[in-house]
């Protein structure tokens, strides 16, 4: 286990370094990205641009600029070019909304995804399975922005069941918190419910053909126990992989959903920053997101070892 943790930590540093360098380079080679020009605004005099360049250190070498920026990211002193606000503070402000959105959606999609997948597999070929298949395929094929637009149009503007946008803190008013998040949760979850239920279904159908399932029946176990203990557990491994990747990526910001529903989280901040070509927040958010992806990947590996004793943490494949 110690070996596993150490390796993962080293890996995480390497990934974050690579991601940040790439982001930094891309920003600097894209034409029209000179921040001094943007900051000086329209009709700026060359003198103004020059002074901004000097003040912000844009004339230093790229490695130097990179090092400075990284230092600021981790010390919490990073200031955005646009609006000149503290980036880390803005991200921290956005975390509650993003985390609320992600966890709520994840609970929904895991619960219904696994339930529907299980029912589909147990009743494979029957009417229930067919119905759930149609639902799943529809959910997978529907673009999230379209689904979001439909929800907003019918449930918010026409029927006025849900509030239109914004985010209310959980501690401020739990009821309004949930009310504001239901539509984003559902939008995010529906795609994944379809996807996860299909994956679980096909894995379970494969597992049902395994010899050990026949053994379980020959022991005289009830069909329910055969399904839950011997079929489902062995089918969960790919689901865990998917979940780790999806959830980790989502924590880095659900840009589209937060944008449409105006949930003031990290994703919305990322959207603003991208629009304004604002490097400091982009950099910080990319690191923030990459951190969660790497973290959840490590958690997935731990979950693997727990689900399947043949997998041992820390031993190399060779």
């Amino acid at each position: 286990m110690a070996r596993f943790v150490v390796r993962r930590l080293v890996g995480m540093v390497a990934v974050l370094f690579a991601v940040s360098v790439l982001t930094f380079l891309i920003f600097n080679v894209v034409p029209g990205s000179d921040p001094a020009v943007r900051m000086a605004g329209k009709n700026a005099t060359p003198r103004l641009i020059e002074s901004i360049t000097e003040e912000w250190g844009f004339d230093e070498s790229l490695p130097q600029q990179y090092l400075k920026m990284m230092e600021k990211v981790f010390s919490g002193d990073l200031i955005s070019y646009e609006g000149r606000e503290n980036v880390d503070e803005r991200i921290v402000e956005g975390i509650p909304a993003t985390v609320s959105l992600c966890i709520g959606a994840a609970v929904l999609w895991m619960f219904f995804g696994l339930l529907f997948g299980y029912l589909s597999a147990v009743r494979a070929g029957g009417w229930l399975d067919r119905g759930l298949t149609v639902f799943a395929v529809a959910g997978i094929s529907m673009p999230t922005f379209l689904l979001a637009a439909l929800f907003l149009n019918y449930l918010t503007y026409k029927a006025e069941i849900f509030p239109s946008s914004g985010y209310v803190g959980l501690t401020e008013n739990p009821l309004e918190w949930a009310e504001h998040l239901i539509l984003p949760w559902m939008t995010l979850a529906i795609l994944n419910i379809g996807f996860y239920s299909r994956v679980l279904r096909s894995n379970m159908l494969d597992a049902m053909g395994e010899d050990y399932v026949r053994t379980a029946r020959a022991k005289g176990l009830s069909e329910r126990r055969v399904m839950t203990r011997h079929v489902t557990r062995n089918s969960l491994i790919p689901i865990v992989t998917l979940f780790g990747l999806d959830f980790g990526a989502l924590l880095g910001g659900a840009i589209v959903i937060e944008g449409i529903f105006d949930v003031e989280g990290v994703g919305l901040y990322a959207y603003e920053a991208l629009k304004n070509f604002d490097l400091p927040p982009i950099m910080a958010i990319v690191l923030f997101g990459a951190f969660f992806v790497v973290l959840f990947n490590a958690l997935v590996d731990i979950a693997y070892a727990w689900l399947d004793p043949r997998i041992r943490l820390g031993s190399s494949a060779r």
Partner: peptide, 28 residues
């Protein structure tokens, strides 16, 4: 019925299968 068969399986008639590699559930 499945119920009656279950009482027989394993208890009165037990079975051993060909491939011992795959006949046990690997995770228990």
């Amino acid at each position: 019925s499945e119920e009656q068969l279950r009482e027989v399986r394993g208890a009165r008639v037990a079975m051993v299968f060909q491939d011992p590699m795959t006949s046990f559930n690997p995770v228990y």
